[in-house]
Design a protein around this nucleic acid. Structure first.
Lengths: 368, 368
DNA sequence: ATAGCCAACTAAAACGTTTTGGCAAATGCC
DNA sequence: GGCATTTGCCAAAACGTTTTAGTTGGCTAT
């Protein structure tokens, strides 16, 4: 018995944390053995392993993460760099992705380092993380065409995952919904059901998700042999506020409009009242269709019988983002793209037609 | 000249990052000198310092943060642990605090580690961070009476800051608005202006901010010698959804009600329509008063002439949270409480009375 | 007996910094 | 010129792990 006093208190929170060296002293073993015992190596005796594990639990030992990070060259941290647009934090779409990211990060034992960068410091912020070894990988969201961040990260060779896509998407891991396919199908659906003047209330087309949705809708009318002005596109830079209401009113000011496609259920919710107040066209009420990101505070069933939905969970996208990063970092797998599935709920009055069929061949491998 | 080839490319992003040892080799100096040169010690020659800084910039040197963390016992990380209530992420109040926290963290060179914990793993989550040395301090928000987290962190001896207060608040750093004072004043204001039936649409009283607001309103009526039922309290667990509208309707169902106090401008916004449709009582329109947290997506001016506001910025609270942590961690200052200032905008029709004066003596040092 | 093998352990190096306690040369002072 | 001080640099230890390359001692097979 080398230990003079026995205390069974679970680590009395004194100044210093207990280290592997303390365990070694306590048990009269080398630190090598302690380390190997705790890391499940086969060359430590069963009795010894038990003792080590017992002591570790009893003294409340936790490996010093910074020492581990230094020697293993792995931090188990993931950086999520935000532009300093503070409106973004109150966008429910962002919150939903965050819920997924945080939940899954916890599951696979990663910590999320959330950062905002100042004006013109975007690449500098990534560069710092790459060079000071403080994270294993990156989450990039809301990509644009020819996105600087992606170019930089590709060059850096570090693991990263993009929520969305752009032209280089075969060279990195991504998670995305089928923006193009979903909106192509929605537009064709309306056209196939006789709508000849359609309003599309889209998001901010500076971002690819909205850009690709726009293209999809245009292509759908073109492929149906209809003129370009079959669809009028409106943009809302931010889904909060009154954009949904305002743009719906604006769209309805065109007396020929018979259908509206919304890029987000938030826009639909805001526009719904303006819609309810609107006069039917050609004796029919105006048809509504929207993307539904499965935001947990919106009760979709309220709109179910009146609105055609295409649904794809943003929280699932958040989960998948972390899974992809974990694949790259933990399992050293090659980057891989993941498409989050989408489901259509076509309103009873409409003929669903070819909604669940593949896109026409010429539109098959379009990004978005 | 020991270096064989000269390359001026800014760190070609090869596999390995450049270390202090590389600089030492490049300049034929010891790593001690490199370190001291970069850290501004006075015992390195001016010419040498220039050369070191030049080489560091040229080769794109960034100190390995994990090595620094190990030796300095400081991580420059702050943990912000979230309960796994995912509704929280889309609460604009949370987003606003987050904007402040992230902005100021960037300013004082800290990274925010955002975590969510699983069921019943709350203290375990804090415990892990305390014991594995991965953060310097903690942000705790939405405290309750006798909050477990605060007890644990007090015992741990680690720096932390609480957004809000509870009874032990003289023993830790906190940032808070004057919940009690603000709502005491609002209630007295209404009472002083003749209102005898008041509805108070409060937040979730499981949390202290709402609990203290409730107490303040009760005390205000009691101090005015009015009966308890002068005020009826309604609670909304979450400010999103339709609680504001629903509870306003419920409150207005009482024909004697002449004033409504809202705990958040979000509730007011939702209730505003119900209010606008309501019949005046005693010939007067129903008086409205609300807390305004300066949420960046709400246009307060729209309600300005009709509603009495007490305004206090949640983003400023976020900034102050980080400042307090920085004081404790960087400057080793004793924990300190910070009260974010509040401002009243009393509606023209109301006599402001004693709104800007101190609370009555018996209410002076009430927490909250 | 001895070579070979296996089980169970360990010393030392490594990860990339900071810091302590020097040391040699140059300078100042009388 | 001789001593003290200052200037400018450095070797080595430390932070707490993991991993490499062993070393023991006991057992087996011959």
């Amino acid at each position: 018995m080398t230990s003079d006093t026995k205390t069974d208190k679970p680590a009395p929170a004194s100044g210093r944390n207990v280290t592997i060296k303390d365990l070694a002293a306590e048990l009269d073993l080398s630190i090598t053995t302690i380390s190997r015992a705790l890391n499940g190596y086969s060359d430590v005796g069963e009795r010894t392993r038990q003792k080590v594990e017992g002591a570790a639990k009893r003294l409340g030992y936790r490996p010093n993460r910074n020492a581990q990070r230094l020697v293993l060259q792995r931090t188990h941290n993931i950086a999520w760099v935000q532009s300093d647009n503070e409106l973004k934090y109150l966008d429910p779409h962002f919150a939903e992705v965050m819920a997924g990211v945080l939940a899954q990060a916890r599951e696979v034992n990663y910590d999320i380092v959330l950062t905002s960068h100042g004006k013109d410091r975007e690449i500098a912020t990534y560069d710092r993380y790459v060079r000071d070894n403080s994270v294993d990988g990156f989450i990039v969201d809301l990509p644009r065409e020819d996105d600087q961040r992606i170019g930089f990260l590709l060059d850096s060779g570090r693991p990263f995952v993009v929520h969305g896509r752009e032209p280089r998407c075969d060279r990195y891991g991504w998670v995305d919904m089928d923006n193009y396919g979903n909106f192509y199908r929605l537009a064709r659906l309306l056209v196939a059901n006789g709508h000849r003047r359609i309003a599309f209330i889209n998001g901010d087309e500076a971002f690819n998700y909205a850009l690709y949705r726009h293209r999809a809708v245009r292509h759908a009318v073109a492929d149906s042999g209809l003129p370009e002005d079959t669809v009028t596109v409106y943009n809302s830079a931010h889904p909060m506020g009154d954009a949904g209401f305002r743009l719906t009113r604006e769209a309805l000011a065109d007396p020929a409009i018979t259908a509206i496609i919304y890029s987000s259920i938030l826009l639909l919710v805001e526009g719904y009242e303006a819609w309810a107040a609107a006069a039917p066209r050609h004796g029919q009420p105006i048809a509504l269709a929207t993307m539904d990101d499965v935001l947990r505070h919106i009760d979709r069933t309220r709109y179910l019988p009146r609105v055609t939905f295409v649904r794809s969970s943003l929280k699932d996208a958040g989960l998948a983002l972390i899974d992809e990063l974990s694949r790259q970092c933990d399992r050293h797998a090659a980057p891989q793209g993941t498409l989050i599935p989408s489901y259509f709920d076509v309103v009873p009055g409409l003929d669903p037609g070819s909604i669940d069929e593949p896109l026409p061949p010429q539109r098959r491998d379009h990004i978005g």
